[in-house]
Design a protein around this nucleic acid. Structure first.
Lengths: 151, 151
DNA sequence: TGAACTCAGACTAATTTAGTCCTATACTCA
DNA sequence: TGAGTATAGGACTAAATTAGTCTGAGTTCA
């Protein structure tokens, strides 16, 4: 159904939370999990993955935790989703590894690949900073993107 | 992983096939299934659904089958996907029925809803006719949409 | 040292998606 | 009219994916 996994959701939420608390030393997986009522161990896994992918910086030990490795403006939703869920393909054909087992028959994949591209671009242009609550600010809030049909 | 279900893929493929053979009387589920090596009974189910949703016209009995209820230009990929997979929500929060069980906490959903909107728009602008093989035609083929970041 | 963390892999449970089976009904044509 | 070919649709099973748990490490710091 073209849905993000919960893990990706959690990941985005966590990054948003970290962005909001950028000043503070570092927040543990437990802290964030409690704030959002997410299973702590699951979130821990997610944050570990994001760390491995270079989106977060981790600090073990007491008073340890995570912090953004870059400014929230420099981290895109796409990076987060890809780090957690792997590469993004809209069609079940193009799983990256094997080519469509419907061999030559699946002629649909190519035009949909363009839609895929557009979605990726969309997510690339959505930054963690865009997820922050802008209420009370008067800068360009609503339209993230405009789409011009050509067809 | 933001992936279309196979059913949606199959549906799109079938509609494309029907569009290509628009002249001919009507093609049975079996015909199409064979052409693409799709499980016939599964495809039958899908076509039935598309018929119920008004995208196809069915005809039972000998030499029966399906045909597009409208011109391929008038059927969008979005309609097909929604007919098969149900409403399209990028976030697992907004499942339509229940609001996010992470109650107030999930503040991520609103900005992502806009991304969602854009994707829907994207799919709405993608018609079955766009899936047809345009090789040999010289009209506006490649860019379906252009995206202008605002942020 | 021990409390509070991260790290990582194996494992189980739950949910979703894919596909099958079976029966009923509709239409066509000889 | 009845045999053959099709759609219609519900119930069911199987497979795959996603979600979440458990366990046992290695770190850091007071």
């Amino acid at each position: 159904m073209l849905r993000l996994t919960k893990k990706a959701d959690y990941g985005l939420m966590a990054l948003k939370y970290l962005a909001e608390h950028a000043g503070e030393p570092s927040l543990s997986a437990k802290d964030i999990a409690e704030a959002y009522h997410i299973p702590p161990q699951l979130l821990a896994k997610i944050l570990q993955k994001l760390t491995r992918e270079g989106l977060l910086r981790s600090h073990a030990g007491m008073n340890g935790g995570y912090s953004l490795s870059r400014d929230a403006k420099e981290i895109s939703a796409f990076e987060v989703i890809r780090a957690i869920d792997g590469p993004l393909f809209i069609t079940s054909c193009t799983t990256g590894t094997s080519t469509c087992d419907l061999t030559a028959s699946c002629t649909i994949k190519e035009p949909l690949a363009r839609v895929n591209e557009s979605i990726v671009e969309l997510l690339r242009n959505t930054r963690i900073s865009d997820l922050l609550d802008h209420s009370g600010r008067e800068e360009a809030p609503p339209e993230l993107v405009t789409i011009a049909s050509v067809s």
